[in-house]
Design a protein around this nucleic acid. Structure first.
Lengths: 337, 337
DNA sequence: AACGGTTTCGCAATCGTTTGCGGTTTCGTT
DNA sequence: AACGAAACCGCAAACGATTGCGAAACCGTT
């Protein structure tokens, strides 16, 4: 049972002055005498007065709240993104409502509706894997609410976007393996129906080509989870015993593969060098620490929300959209040499 | 530039009926004829009408929004908690505003104020490490806003709580080290101003006592982050060369310590056995896989929000508070033997 | 004493919605 | 034809805050 919260009306009644005077006094409006102002402020503090944001928001038609729709919070990458979002939001005086879709289309729709009903000033979205219909996002556009997509962008909805240059990152990883003298480099790839899968394979291929390595399709193994790596790595390494470099599409795959390879009696990095992609904290915890392509979740969140706030606070023409591409960088550790 | 959002007033004007009729028609109030009701509903759908939650909330004095204050989102444990919170909130029709304090007292205070201003219906809190003053939490109580503390609870504020049985978990961990034959067992502890720090130390001590080990304060090292472990472990192990068991207050500390110990030329688990606390995915990726006390983040979030919603929706007497204790279990892996 | 200019404050509308109460139809009954 | 009950709908206040405009009150000047 909620108690009555103090309002300016209460303060007005107690002090025997009008509501408007209290309102003005609280924000040091010059129309109000200093004595009155002080009286009001003192009483407000004494009563623990907190302005009712709901009322203000209703009047201003602005909530200072941003919505976020994200597939899964329990993911180092996504939680980093949220962290970046939160920090910038905090600095700029915005609140954040985080919704997770759990990769479910229906839930994403409901989340979007809730954010709409709550009149958020803008939304940040990373699309669920099961979403192929985008009308729930278009409603934001219809209402003039700015959107920024990040990471999992929505190709069918024009808007601002923040993405990672997967191809470039994969190129760096592969180039590094080449530069340290690897002669036969395998790629443990992500599914090719995902943009990230395509991009990372493409970067791998471009590096091979640029350094006159022949592309051998049999050196590409679709394998992008810890479980798959544990299942497939040994056989693959036996089939291709002279592989001395592996670029995996993500860190957990790389780490699992590394552990299997070590168990097979090979030394990492002396016999085989491995590079991952993602740079969660896992890369540091593995042994040896994993060379990996750093994916900047925090920066992505920060960039996305900056873009969004800019859109909200400046009346930019509605038809100008940017796409920000974050270039990942290679972090060289001890799994390659 | 935000467009005008459709309101019931617009619908009323177009249909030439009153606002109240529209309002009632939309919720199928029996006073309204079926034809009118249908007309209204159709037009509402056509215009993409979305009820303004702000206005409703202002009138109802209820927001259907819950606040969460958490130290850090980028933590497997905390993001699991949020995931649990989100899922239940979604099922029960609540929105969630997540704020991270980044372990900063000042920021925690501001977060609390923001939630207060937004008139959340209740709050879930896990206290920052740098918080020693709790008035900002008491404001919630003063306003009659239910609070539930979880994990990092606040001893000075009476309220509902959800915690893990840290003492019990620590006991299990220490007992395990004793049972496998460790003779000199150190504890890398969390700060003693945190209840979890106290609890884990207490469990360690109880196990020692129960098995007639002498408690040696110099074997307790305050060290609860990866960075601290990297900084302090070597010196500690040199000062105490015959330590053959370490119980660390969390996994990342245990893993970092394990890596340092390995670098010092000792074998894990042959020379030194280590146990962590927390069981994020890291414990599996470390080498050797870490024995650890399993902490149930998702369940904790779910339990906490259930308690909170119960408090919100039922007028339970304000003076009855529960504490829910989640019992952790020991997961034995290869860092101990 | 009357006037003009400050200073200081209050009225009332507004944001979008809900809801008690009262008012107008409509229709059936006698 | 007249009366009463249903059925249907609108007025207006309320939630808490902001703000343009108007209005007192006070001061000094002539």
């Amino acid at each position: 049972m909620k108690l009555h919260q103090v309002t300016i009306k209460d303060i007005a009644k107690i002090l025997g002055i009008s509501i408007s005077t209290v309102s003005r006094a609280l924000k040091s409006h010059p129309d109000i005498s200093i004595e009155t102002r002080n009286q009001v402020k003192e009483l407000a503090k004494k009563l623990n007065y907190e302005p009712n944001a709901l009322a203000m928001n209703l009047r201003r038609n602005k909530t200072n709240t941003l919505g976020v729709i994200i597939p899964e919070i329990v993911h180092h990458f996504f939680s980093s993104v949220i962290s970046g979002i939160e920090d910038i939001a905090y600095d700029r005086g915005y609140n954040v409502m985080v919704c997770q879709s759990n990769e479910l289309y229906d839930r994403e729709v409901i989340n979007a509706q809730a954010l709409l009903a709550n009149r958020v000033d803008g939304v940040l979205i990373s699309v669920s894997k099961t979403t192929f219909e985008f009308d729930h996002f278009r409603h934001f556009a219809n209402q003039g609410i700015p959107m920024v997509f990040f990471d999992r962008i929505c190709p069918d909805v024009i808007s601002d976007r923040v993405i990672t240059n997967d191809e470039g990152g994969a190129f760096l990883a592969t180039e590094h393996l080449i530069s340290i003298g690897c002669k036969k480099i395998a790629h443990f790839s992500a599914p090719q129906n995902l943009m990230i899968g395509q991009g990372r394979l493409a970067g791998y291929q471009r590096a091979l080509k640029q350094y006159q390595f022949e592309f051998d399709p049999s050196l590409v193994l679709q394998c992008d989870t810890r479980e798959l790596a544990i299942e497939k790595t040994e056989r693959f390494m036996n089939d291709n015993p002279d592989v001395d470099g592996v670029f995996a599409a993500n860190d957990s795959t790389a780490i699992a593969a590394m552990q299997i390879i070590q168990k097979m009696g090979k030394n990492v990095p002396d016999n085989v060098s491995l590079v991952g992609f993602g740079d969660g904290p896992n890369a540091l915890i593995a042994w040896p620490p994993l060379t990996t392509v750093e994916q900047k979740g925090y920066e992505m969140g920060a960039e996305a929300i900056k873009l969004l706030i800019h859109k909200i606070e400046n009346d930019t023409p509605t038809d100008s959209y940017q796409t920000k591409v974050l270039t990942p960088s290679l972090i060289i550790r001890e799994s390659t040499k």
